[in-house]
Amino acid sequence: MNITVQVNGVSETRSVEPRVLLVHFLRENLGLTGTHVGCDTSQCGACTVLLDGAAVKSCSLFAVQADGRKVTTIEGLSTDGKLHAMQQAFWDQHGLQCGFCTPGMIVSACHLLERNPNPSEAEIREGLEGNLCRCTGYANIVKAVQQAARAG
C-alpha cells in the first residue's frame, strides 16, 4: 500500500508491504541507515526515532502506522551542517565508543530534555533506561545529556 511520511522535513511517498517495520522502511526504502536495529524485543533502543516529536522504537511500529505523520531520525537532527546540541555533547563528553547505540541514544536523550529540560542525574538515568549501551557504562552519556541540558 502507499504511504506518505514526512521524514526529516521531506515528504516521502512509497509503496510498502503492510508488514514492513518502520525501521526497515527508513533503512531500506529511504536509505536512512543511521537508525539501527539491535534487538527484536524493543529493549535496546538503537532504533529510536521521533514520531510527531515523541521517541518511539521504530522496530516496534509498522511503516503504515507512520502514514501521514512526521518522523525525525538521527540524520534530521543537525541543521545547516551544524551538530545538534545533543550530538555535540556526546562528542565533547566521549559519550560513545562503538557508536552503534548512539543514534537511538541521542534521539531518546533529545526527547528526554524535551519533556524535562533540567533533569537530575537520576532522572537522566531513568529516562534512558530504554536504551542499552554495552561500551560506555553510561557514565559519559549522562554527562553528555547534562551538557546538552546546560546548552538549553
Binding site: 533503512r27 539501527h36 531520525t73 538521527i74 540524520e75 543537525s78 551538530l83 556526546f90
Partner: peptide, 13 residues
C-alpha cells in the same frame, strides 16, 4: 565521532 553521532557510520548492515 562526527560520523557516528550524525548517523553516517558505515556498519555492515
Amino acid at each position: 565521532d562526527p560520523r557516528l553521532v550524525t548517523g553516517k557510520g558505515n556498519f555492515v548492515d
